[in-house]
Amino acid sequence: MKPAAFDYLRTENVGDVLEGLTQEGGNARVLAGGQSLMAMLNMRLAKPKLLIDIMRIKEFRQIERKADAVVIGAGVRQAELLAWPDLAEALPLVALALPWVGHMQTRSRGTICGSLAHADPSAEMPLTLVALGGEVHLRSARRRRRVAAKDFFAGMMLTARADDELIEGISLPIVRDGRFAFREVARRHGDFAIVACAAMRTPSGVRLAVGGVADVPTARDWPRLEGSALDDALNGFAYDLDARDDVHATARYRRDLVRMIGRDLIREVLQ
């Protein structure tokens, strides 16, 4: 199918974007890499009156390393972050998860922040943001605010972003001496995950974050667990995620995957 008609606004100035969002509100959508939004437009699942292209705004194209976090601008493409020389050292979990995002042909255009704005519950970048406890930087003509990952995702493809707000970037904490693991199961490499898991060692134990099961990616922390205590904890988590049957997999299969992948990854990071 083809998109419904919209006005197209292209600008090099953030002020124009904020003004457009203020004027049009929910009728405006921000276009970055387009790898999620354009598909939504083609299928007419989204019918904005105004599309605001932000990819010619230079200040959004930056990856900035600070003392304890990396700030990724709204225009940074997935392939650009994957090619960032500091990635494996500063953000090892992102280095593990990013190759699972779509395909080389979509990572070349798709942005990190666009994937977060789309908020597909089985997508890897929302899962990574939640696992690391990152923050989303929102900006409107009225104010700027930062929202923690766990508060940003409000439901399937729903976020805490207000209609007049733009995601101008995200920050991901740099975890020193961390240990991370990532794995997902999909029908085909590059498809949306049936279940995706990220694990990390924390000062008090371990954290497991799961995508593809609940409406939003969900993380849980435990002290160091082993043996049947770990099995029980994982089983409880798998049920709490409230998996549902769909065309891709049954709820039971999803719970199985959470238990199995969860156990493997937790062992890997606690080794």
Binding site: Y8, R10, M38, Q105
Partner: peptide, 22 residues
């Protein structure tokens, strides 16, 4: 499906997920 893949400014690009105006 990837049938419409082209290269824009050195980037592999799905031309069906890209507007002419872009």
């Amino acid at each position: 499906c990837g049938a419409c893949t082209v290269v824009v400014d050195g980037m592999l690009t799905r031309s069906c997920l890209t507007l002419a105006a872009q």
